[in-house]
Simulated assay, not measured.
Amino acid sequence: MYIVPIAWIYVALMMSVAEATNSNGTVLGAVMTFVLYGLLPVGLVLYIMGTPGRKRLLRAKAAEERAAWEAQAASPTAMAEPQPALADAPDTGGHAPADSVPPVGKKP
């Protein structure tokens, strides 16, 4: 799977070496050639090729969290004591927030 990106990096490296050693070439031009023709395209292709794997990991993590939540909800002690992570979080009650500050210009 990685043979094509490795080969492309090699070709871009050889292009940049040829530009650096040419009588009209510069080292800055060689570096720009390697970055613009080698690193950026290969990085983009590898990122796009890795998308299915990242999605698979996210789905597996979500399924694991859902299974843990269902196991916790099914236990008999789940309703007896509040969980510290959920009890300390704001607005987890599912109710609309109360209007604690009256609007400006209106008397309570």
Rank of each mutant, 00 (worst) to 15 (best):
M15P: 01
A20F: 04
A12G: 10
L28N: 14
M32S: 04
V35D: 07
W8C: 02
T33Y: 03
V11A: 11
N22A: 10
I6A: 10
N24A: 09
I9Q: 02
A18I: 11
M32F: 09
G29C: 04
T21D: 06
V35A: 05
W8P: 02
P5V: 03
E19T: 13
M14C: 13
S16G: 13
A12E: 00
A30D: 03
A20K: 02
F34E: 06
V35P: 02
E19V: 12
E19L: 09
A30L: 00
A7T: 14
S23P: 12
L13P: 01
S16V: 05
I6Q: 12
Y10L: 00
L13W: 15
W8R: 07
A7L: 08
L13I: 10
N22F: 12
M14D: 15
W8S: 10
V35W: 05
V31E: 00
M14N: 15
N24C: 09
W8I: 04
G25T: 10
A12H: 02
L13F: 14
A12C: 11
L13S: 15
A18P: 03
L13Y: 15
E19K: 14
T33R: 02
A30I: 01
A20Q: 07
V4R: 13
I6P: 02
W8Y: 03
M15A: 11
V11Q: 09
Y10D: 03
F34W: 14
F34L: 07
Y10C: 00
P5W: 06
S16R: 04
T26L: 00
V4C: 12
M15W: 13
M32D: 10
T33I: 06
M32N: 08
A18D: 12
V4S: 15
A20V: 01
V11L: 02
F34H: 08
M15K: 06
G29Q: 04
I6F: 15
A30F: 07
T33W: 01
G25D: 05
L13N: 10
N22D: 13
M15F: 12
A7I: 11
L28C: 05
A30S: 11
F34C: 00
P5F: 07
A20D: 03
V17S: 07
L28V: 10
N24S: 08
I9V: 06
T26R: 12
V27G: 01
G25F: 09
V17R: 09
S23E: 11
Y10E: 02
T26A: 03
T26P: 02
N24V: 07
T33L: 00
A7W: 12
T26G: 08
I6E: 07
V17E: 05
V17W: 08
V35Y: 06
M14F: 12
V4Y: 15
L28H: 14
T26C: 05
P5M: 03
T33P: 05
G29T: 01
L28W: 13
G25A: 08
L13M: 10
Y10W: 14
E19Y: 08
I6N: 14
E19A: 07
S16N: 01
N24D: 12
V4D: 13
P5Y: 04
V11I: 11
M15D: 13
M32K: 06
A12N: 12
